[in-house]
Design a protein around this nucleic acid. Structure first.
Lengths: 235, 235
DNA sequence: GATGATTTGTACGTATGTATA
DNA sequence: ATATACATACGTACAAATCAT
């Protein structure tokens, strides 16, 4: 596991759990580029020169082009014929819309999880939450981020709906470049943990409405936090 | 407009409204393959031989491979390294999950539309609905289908959320191969129209909850209708 | 289980379209 | 506006992996 800490897994369209089959060059390059975009090493708006990048990864342009096409389908880059692909730079309005949908998707996950999560899944979620409490004490944003992803992923899985998990993760990945800074704003760590606590309780109680509502609020708070950091907020 | 009646538009990842720029070969082939899958000319499980299909379309394997990769990202085909891509054949369980998510996405669209639809959008929706009434009299399933798509698309647009529109349309496209037969079941046309009527009224009244609930029911009824037709239903 | 046939994955050269002087 | 430079789109050849016998 030498992936970057901020990497969102499941870069593949159709993914099997632990299958460690040999990757094609196109898949390798796609994974690397996706990570670089998700954790901000490639900034929104930046053009991706095929020849240049292919050379830098030591592959020909063919697999690189396939990788870029996948990234375009994921929404991470935008392509137009005969022009370089560029890292997606959504307008503030489009970003707002994506956060709104993200909030609803996660709320739906939470609601379904409250209804259908298995006992072992509930225990696992609690364990992750306790881990977050530990990290909170040490005030370590980067470690918090990793476990935070797991907390949310555990709730997605609890929905017992693979398709919902798929589109929720895909949306999360698209938003990742714009959520990175969230834990840098003052006191966000502690607030996030408290929100998680409310969500966890609601899910464990099997209260679907409450789970949905607390999760929705949690996500929209993340958006606020980003806007605050990025200086987009009017407030 | 010589596209097949059942074709779901917006095959492109990033689409501009009326931009009629010259398509690349990869885009042309992708559009054709997507249509063929969506309206069932290519059956789930069928392998797509690259050499064969490339020859049949008169293009080389390079653009064809790019097209297949896009289809894989859309979920219309499944690919595994060094194996032929096959038209996606979801399990009954996975199909159920997709319909569940579809119902929630459309319900969200309807809810947001009830809150935010513009006056001209409302009028357009009414016009479409009246067109459906006309077609209903003539009992013409194929024409009903075309306008039915427009009815739903109009509601998506009314949500004022481009990202929601994007993923809802994408989900609809993925489900299309499994919804084709819905209007063949007895009386489905008339029932569908009545459901639309309830949805329309709720939206025009600005009743978000009711709009969501009537839409959710409508979609799940479509699923039932498919299952009935496909013989999957236990009832 | 090994070997040949078949199909996919990759490299590279040329054609074509875009941007800029 | 025309031409030139440059990046992408596509075709073809070969390598590598799968499958069929």
């Amino acid at each position: 596991m030498k992936k970057s800490p901020t990497a969102v897994d499941d870069t593949s369209p159709a993914k099997e759990a632990g299958s460690r089959r040999k990757l094609t060059r196109a898949e390798e390059v796609r994974a690397k580029l996706a990570d670089d975009i998700v954790d901000g090493k490639l900034s929104p708006g930046m053009p991706l020169d095929e020849t240049e990048i292919a050379a830098s990864y030591g592959v020909s342009r063919t697999p690189l082009r396939e990788a870029i096409r996948d990234l375009a389908a994921m929404g991470l880059v935008e392509t137009r014929p005969h022009r370089s692909a560029i890292v997606t730079r959504p307008s503030p309005e489009h970003l707002r819309q994506m956060f709104q949908v993200m909030a609803e998707l996660e709320a739906l996950c939470a609601s379904l999880a409250a209804a259908h999560m298995s006992l072992s899944e509930r225990r696992k979620l609690e364990t992750i939450h306790e881990g977050l409490a530990q990290i909170l004490k040490e005030n370590d944003p980067s470690h918090y981020h990793v476990l935070n992803e797991k907390f949310h992923a555990a709730i997605y899985a609890g929905s017992q709906n693979a398709y919902l998990v798929e589109i929720t993760l895909a949306t999360r990945r698209r938003l990742s470049p714009f959520r990175r800074a969230q834990f840098l704003t003052a006191g966000r760590l502690a607030k996030s943990y408290k929100e998680h606590d409310l969500i966890l309780v609601a899910i464990l109680q099997g209260n679907r409405e409450l789970a949905a509502e607390t999760m929705r609020r949690h996500i929209l708070t993340v958006e606020d936090s980003y806007e605050e950091y990025a200086g987009l907020k009017v407030t």
